Computed example of a mutant assay.
Amino acid sequence: MMRFLTQFFTWWNGQTLGTRFNTWRFGKSVGEDQFGNAYYEGGTNSDGQTRRWVIYKGYSEASAIPPGWHGWIHHRVDTPPSDENYKPREWQKPYQANMTGTAAAYRPKGSILGQDRRPQVTGDYDAWTPSA
């Protein structure tokens, strides 16, 4: 029952009931990645291309798609990684969760949320002060 309610009321956690029905009706399973995300294709979109989609395992996070599947789902390549011996290139980074909003988020130098102190003002810039 809880699974039904989750699929009925949320879009960010796995799949909705509409996606489940569409996948059952039109989807052809293409493969699964190392994170448990399932990839499907079926039907055509308005451009005449085969429609491709992913059903995330757990929380829907677009950055959780590995590089090989990213290329396939965006129609950069026609062969899914499950049908070939795909190896990521040396410059492709492994998946790292999106840390925005957490304590581990990136804080650039000088950010008020960072640990570093802001650099001193140099002679080419004077901070504005209100005149009294």
Rank of each mutant, 00 (worst) to 15 (best):
residue 105 A to H: 06
residue 46 S to P: 09
residue 43 G to R: 01
residue 45 N to H: 01
residue 3 R to F: 06
residue 130 P to K: 03
residue 103 A to C: 05
residue 85 N to R: 03
residue 101 G to R: 03
residue 56 Y to G: 00
residue 20 R to E: 10
residue 47 D to S: 15
residue 117 R to F: 04
residue 111 S to C: 04
residue 86 Y to I: 02
residue 10 T to L: 10
residue 128 W to I: 08
residue 14 G to V: 00
residue 37 N to P: 03
residue 62 A to G: 08
residue 6 T to W: 03
residue 131 S to R: 09
residue 53 W to I: 09
residue 36 G to S: 11
residue 79 T to S: 06
residue 4 F to I: 01
residue 118 R to E: 09
residue 96 Q to C: 13
residue 73 I to G: 02
residue 15 Q to N: 04
residue 36 G to E: 10
residue 43 G to N: 03
residue 45 N to V: 08
residue 127 A to W: 10
residue 86 Y to A: 00
residue 38 A to H: 15
residue 77 V to K: 00
residue 85 N to I: 14
residue 104 A to I: 04
residue 124 D to N: 08
residue 28 K to H: 15
residue 126 D to E: 09
residue 24 W to M: 12
residue 28 K to W: 06
residue 74 H to V: 11
residue 87 K to F: 12
residue 105 A to F: 05
residue 4 F to K: 00
residue 60 S to K: 07
residue 85 N to F: 15
residue 57 K to T: 08
residue 11 W to F: 12
residue 68 G to D: 11
residue 36 G to R: 06
residue 20 R to N: 07
residue 65 I to N: 03
residue 110 G to Q: 05
residue 132 A to G: 07
residue 34 Q to A: 12
residue 8 F to I: 05
residue 46 S to L: 14
residue 127 A to L: 13
residue 40 Y to L: 00
residue 91 W to N: 14
